[in-house]
C-alpha cells in the first residue's frame, strides 16, 4: 500500500497495561466483513468501549476525561497477539492512534503496523511500567516521540531512547511504498525463481495438474 512519511508524534498517551491484548479484542469479528479499509474506527476496542446497548463504557480508559484525544497507547506485554487481521491496525489509526509504546508485540501485528505507518516502540518492561504510572494522570499524559532521534519524551522527566531497525526507520521516514521498493529487485526475484524451479521442478505450479487421481 502507499504510505506517507511519518510526521512527528506528540499528544496524549493512554495506559492499556493488560497483558496479551489480542487482535480479536482490538478489532472484533463483526467488523471484518468488509472489502475495504474504511469505517473501522468504531470497531477499534469495540466491546471494551461500548456496552451491549452501544453506550460508551465509563470504565474504559479511552472513554475517560482527559483521554478522549489519545494519539499514543502505552501497552502491556504481547499487545496485538493472535489473529493476522490488519483491520486491527487500520481501526486503531482511524481512531487517531499514531504510535504504541510497549514491551513487545505480536509478530504479525508488528509487521502490519509498520506497513501502515503506525509506529510501534519497544521499551524494557521496567521503563514501560514507569511510563504507565506517569500517564495514569491525564495531566501528565503528554508524550513526544522523535523517530529521527529515536527518543521518547514524557512528563515528570521521563526520557528514553529506543531501538529501531534502520530499514524500517527509513521506510517510515521516507514513506516509500513497500512494494515499489521490492519491485526494484524484480530481476533478482525472477532469476531466483527460475533457479528454484529448475532445481526443484515439482514446485512448478500445477506441473502435474490433471495427472493425479482425485482424493
Amino acid at each position: 500500500m502507499i504510505s506517507r512519511p511519518l510526521k512527528p508524534i506528540s499528544g496524549v498517551a493512554a495506559p492499556l497495561p493488560g497483558s496479551n491484548i489480542d487482535t480479536d479484542v482490538i478489532m472484533p469479528k463483526q467488523f471484518l466483513k468488509t472489502i475495504n479499509r474504511e469505517n473501522l474506527a468504531n470497531g477499534a476496542f469495540h466491546d471494551l468501549r461500548f456496552d451491549e446497548a452501544g453506550k460508551p463504557r465509563p470504565d474504559f480508559v479511552l472513554n475517560q476525561s482527559g483521554y478522549d484525544q489519545t494519539v499514543i497507547l502505552v501497552t502491556g506485554p504481547n499487545f496485538g497477539c493472535g489473529s493476522s487481521r490488519e483491520h486491527a491496525v487500520w481501526g486503531l489509526m482511524q481512531l487517531g492512534i499514531r504510535a504504541i509504546i510497549g514491551s513487545g508485540y505480536g509478530g504479525i501485528f508488528f509487521d502490519n503496523a509498520m506497513k501502515n505507518g503506525l509506529l510501534l516502540v519497544t521499551l524494557d518492561e521496567a521503563d514501560v511500567a514507569v511510563l504507565l504510572r506517569t500517564i495514569s494522570n491525564p495531566a501528565t499524559a503528554q508524550i513526544d516521540i522523535d523517530l529521527g532521534a529515536q527518543e521518547i519524551i514524557g512528563r515528570d522527566g521521563f526520557a528514553r531512547r529506543f531501538q529501531m531497525n534502520p530499514y524500517q526507520k527509513d521506510l517510515l521516514q521516507s514513506g516509500q511504498d513497500h512494494i515499489d521498493r521490492t519491485l526494484d529487485a524484480l530481476g533478482d526475484i525472477k532469476a531466483f525463481q527460475l533457479d528454484r524451479l529448475t532445481q526443484f521442478p515439482w514446485l512448478t505450479f500445477n506441473a502435474d495438474a490433471g495427472t493425479a487421481p482425485s482424493l
Partner: peptide, 20 residues
C-alpha cells in the same frame, strides 16, 4: 507463516516478503 493484508498484496505483486 501468517501475514497481514499489506503483505498479501506484497506477495501477489512480488512473490516475496520482506522477512525478519
Amino acid at each position: 507463516f501468517g501475514i497481514g493484508t499489506s503483505d498479501v498484496e506484497h506477495v501477489l505483486c512480488t512473490q516475496t516478503v520482506v522477512y525478519k
